[in-house]
Design a protein around this nucleic acid. Structure first.
Lengths: 221, 221
DNA sequence: TCGCTTCCGTACCGTACGTTACGGTTCGGC
DNA sequence: GCCGAACCGTAACGTACGGTACGGAAGCGA
């Protein structure tokens, strides 16, 4: 029962277990929340007994799958040396573009769907591993942790002006994501081409700089 | 998107049926998606046979419940006469405040949860009314339909400058909502007091005017 | 009073699915 | 070769829940 892999996740997984979780992830993307243990076992060519032995129950399998996907998204650290307006702009555009790509990906949509669906007013009985918290931690909050140092560096370089990095980040978040995520989660067909994402990233960055850019000199477009 | 915007579904409902839908709505808020037909029948003091006779099946009951809630949110039209910067600002702040109150309400969260959960890759076979489309239509798109005339009036009054009302609306949407909705849907405890909502509305409006205001300063795209 | 309609309460059915059990197979160690 | 562990495939069990059927009560017109 309690033998599930809940902590130190990516370390304690064998290759076989990773393959099983990959199969579960694929199934989750294809079929949404109503994926069954039988389907996972069949897709992964393993027995249900093994699934229960490894992950405890369906909830544990779901949690392990989400954590497994989260562990796969490793982040490249941003270099803060030689920061000028051009490099800051490029960094912000890169963050915006990456974030739009993430939230519009099938995997992210599927994971957010299942996490939202299970985040009801009824808490899990063990209450420990909440899928919503995991997704949030590896999504929005991870983005904030990565972006804030860039914002701080921009401020120290005299390129940005703000008093609250959290508020500045949330504004950037809103300018980038706008209504994209909720529309996608609600099933709206919203084709986001690479070109559209690039344009949105540029627009969001310009708007953010218009709001938080240091007023020393001509800026704007 | 589609028409069927203001179809008055509340017309064909008897008082008893409205009471039943209210009970279902309350149950939805309390228990999330896993509300059962038996629970609805017991809460509404009616028989399951009646539920099926009135709403067809569980999907029909869910759809009727969402539409019933949507029909209850009636909108006060905005007067566009005598528009100056102060009244425009007040209107925008009002929109922002109302929208934040909506998306942070228990009812909205519950409805969005169930709609997101059911908006998986598996489409309804008969393609009947999709909950996600209904929520979207009565949420984001209804807000756009209400706000765009205000934006247009502001532009004609020389207070705003934009070429694409849809883009301007989406920017306003992003500045107002930021990460609030996704965090709430994912179960993040995010206490939004009336004071905080008011402050956010003022901030969002201020930022929007900084980007799209027709002053002799920085102008948006 | 009778018959009709509507609806409540509840028992019932069928199925899907989470979970468990078990026989059979592979594989490493001795 | 033999043993035990791990694992696959599948059958079986228990239960929850969507959906249906049925008896009975209340209202209503004649």
């Amino acid at each position: 029962m309690q033998a599930s892999v809940d902590i130190d996740t990516s370390e304690a997984l064998t290759e076989r277990q990773k393959a099983v979780l990959d199969a579960a992830l694929r199934l989750l993307v294809e079929e949404g929340d109503q994926l069954t243990m039988t389907a996972v076992a069949r897709r992964a060519s393993c027995s249900k007994e093994t699934l229960y032995k490894w992950f405890g129950d369906r909830d544990g399998l779901l949690t392990a799958t989400v954590q497994w996907q989260a562990s796969k998204v490793r982040v490249v650290p941003v270099d803060r040396k030689g920061l000028d307006l051009a490099s800051l702009t490029a960094s912000l555009e890169r963050f915006a573009s990456d974030w739009l790509k993430v939230i519009s990906s099938d995997t992210s949509i599927a994971l957010n769907r299942v996490a939202v669906g299970r985040a009801g007013p009824i808490r899990r009985k063990d209450g420990k591993d909440d899928l919503g918290a995991i997704v949030l931690e590896n999504g929005r909050f991870a983005l904030a942790r990565r972006l804030k140092p860039v914002l701080e560096a921009g401020r120290q370089a005299g390129l940005l002006e703000f008093s609250d990095a959290e508020a500045a980040f949330r504004t950037f978040f809103g300018l980038v994501a706008r209504d994209v995520q909720i529309r996608l989660l609600l099933g709206d067909r919203l084709e986001l081409t690479d070109a559209a994402i690039g344009g949105d990233a540029v627009r969001a960055t310009h708007q953010f700089l218009a709001l938080y850019g240091a007023k020393t000199g001509p800026q704007g477009l």
